[in-house]
Write a protein that binds this DNA or RNA. Structure first.
Lengths: 220, 220
DNA sequence: AATTTCTTGTGAAGCATTTCACATGAAAAA
DNA sequence: TTTTTCATGTGAAATGCTTCACAAGAAATT
C-alpha cells in the first residue's frame, strides 16, 4: 500500500515573486510599528490589487482574520517559511570579478539568510586574496570544497565561455540551485534549479519602452 | 483633421524579454556562421516552443521565409530596432558602491549600446576618483549634469534610504527611464519608466524551489 | 445583545498568454 | 516542370492568471 501522492499545487513564478515583495513590505510594517495589515494596505504598498494579495496567500493557507486583516509578524513568519528563508543558506560565489566581488558585499543577501561562505576563481593573483574576510579558493578545488561544505546554492559570475564547466562541476558536487549571471544558456539536469540574472535585459526593456512609448500593464 | 491614432498593440513583458533572448541567440548564430534559422532551432536554444517564437515575432511583422526560416542578420537587425538597441544610449550610474562600480565595468551593457557616461556619488572620498576613465561627480550636481548631457537612462545603486531623492532629481533633469537596484518601492511620474532589479528575489525563488520541490512551467 | 462595519477567503467570470493546427507559399528534389 | 518537403504566419482552442463579487465571520459600535 502507498500513501497519497502529495497534491502538487502549481504555484506561478509571479506568485512567488510577490511573496518576496510581501515579505519585504511586512518587514517594513514591522519596523513602522504596525501589528496588523489588510490586504488593501499591502496591495497599495506593492501596487497590486487586494484580491491579488489574498489569492496569492490562499494558495498556502488562511492566515488572516476577517474584519481585522493579517498579523504582521505572524504573516511575515509564514511567508518566510514558505520561501524557505526561515533558515540560513550557504552560498558560494564562483568568479571573483567585478560582479562577483560586489555580490560578496551585498547586504541584502545576508539579510535574507543567504550567507556567502566560499569564493572561487581561477586567477592566480586572486586565489588566496581576502574579500570581506573570505579567502578566494582555487577553482580546481571547486567540486571537493563545495561538497565538503555542503553548499546548496552557488552564484556564477564567470565569463560565458567557461560557465558551463563550472556548472558541471558544482552539479557533481551536489549543489541544488544556481543563480547564473553569465549571458549564456546553461544546461543542467532536471533536478537542479537554475535562474538567470541578465541585467542587460532590464535595460533593453527600458529601451523598448522609451522607443515604443510602451504602456505596460504592470512594470515589475 | 487629424491622423489616425497609432494602433496601440499591447505587447506583454514576456514577449519583450523573449525578444532580448532571441537577439542574443541570433548574435551567437551569426558568430557560428549560420545564415538562416528556423523558429524550431531558435526555440530549442531558448527552451521555448516554435509557436511561441513565431507568435512573438508576428506582433511586429513577418520576417521569415516559408520553407526556409529567418535570415539571421536581418532578424537580428529587426529585433534590434524593435528593442531600440540599434542606437547608443547614454546612461549614468548613481551611487558608486559595490554594485555601482561593478556595473561601470560590466561589458554586456556597452555591448548592447548602453554607454555609461557619468558617475555620481555623495561621498567626498569618491568624488573626483577615476573609474574606468570616468571621474565621479558630486551628487549635488546631479540634476544639472544629467540635463546638460542629455542622459535618458540612469541606474540607481544608492542605499534605499536616499533612493527616492535621487529619483526626484533625475526626473526633474529629464531622464526617461530608471533601473533601480535599491530594495524599495520608488514613486515616479507615470511618464517615467521604472524597473526594479532585486537580486535577493532570485535567490528567494531558488530557496522556495528547493524547499517546496517546485516544478515550475518555465524557469526563466 | 443586537447591529453595523470591516475584511477575509474563494468560486466564478473575465482577460491574457500560450499552444495547436493548418492553409499558404517558398525552396529543394525529382 | 512537377512534386515533395519544409517552415511561416495566424485564427481558434486551450490553458493560465487576475479580478470580481459576495458569503462568512470577526471586531467594533450602539
Amino acid at each position: 500500500m502507498s500513501s497519497e501522492l502529495p497534491e502538487k499545487k502549481r504555484i506561478s513564478e509571479s506568485t512567488i515573486h510577490r511573496l518576496s515583495m510581501y515579505y519585504r513590505s511586512l518587514s517594513l510594517l514591522q519596523k513602522e510599528g504596525y501589528d496588523t495589515v489588510s490586504s488593501k494596505e499591502l496591495a497599495k504598498r506593492e501596487k497590486l490589487t487586494p484580491a491579488q494579495v489574498r489569492k496569492d496567500l490562499s494558495f498556502f493557507g488562511s492566515f488572516g482574520t476577517r474584519g481585522l486583516g493579517y498579523d504582521v509578524t505572524e504573516l511575515k513568519t509564514k511567508i518566510g517559511e514558505i520561501l524557505g528563508i526561515d533558515r540560513q543558506w550557504k552560498v558560494a560565489v564562483i568568479g571573483i570579478g567585478n560582479i562577483g566581488s560586489a555580490l560578496v558585499s551585498y547586504k541584502e543577501f545576508s539579510r535574507q539568510g543567504f550567507n556567502i561562505v566560499k569564493l572561487f576563481d581561477n586567477d592566480q593573483r586572486k586565489i588566496g586574496s581576502n574579500h570581506k574576510g573570505l579567502i578566494v579558493s582555487d577553482i580546481n578545488n571547486l567540486e571537493k570544497e563545495i561538497a565538503e561544505d555542503g553548499i546548496e546554492m552557488v552564484i556564477i559570475t564567470v565569463p560565458a565561455t567557461v560557465a558551463q564547466y563550472m556548472v558541471d562541476d558544482v552539479v557533481r558536487a551536489g549543489v541544488k540551485a544556481i543563480l547564473n549571471f553569465a549571458p549564456i544558456n546553461l544546461k543542467v539536469p532536471s533536478n537542479i534549479y537554475l535562474r538567470n540574472e541578465n541585467m542587460s535585459m532590464e535595460l533593453e526593456y527600458l529601451s523598448f519602452a522609451i522607443v515604443n512609448n510602451h504602456t505596460p500593464k504592470n512594470m515589475k
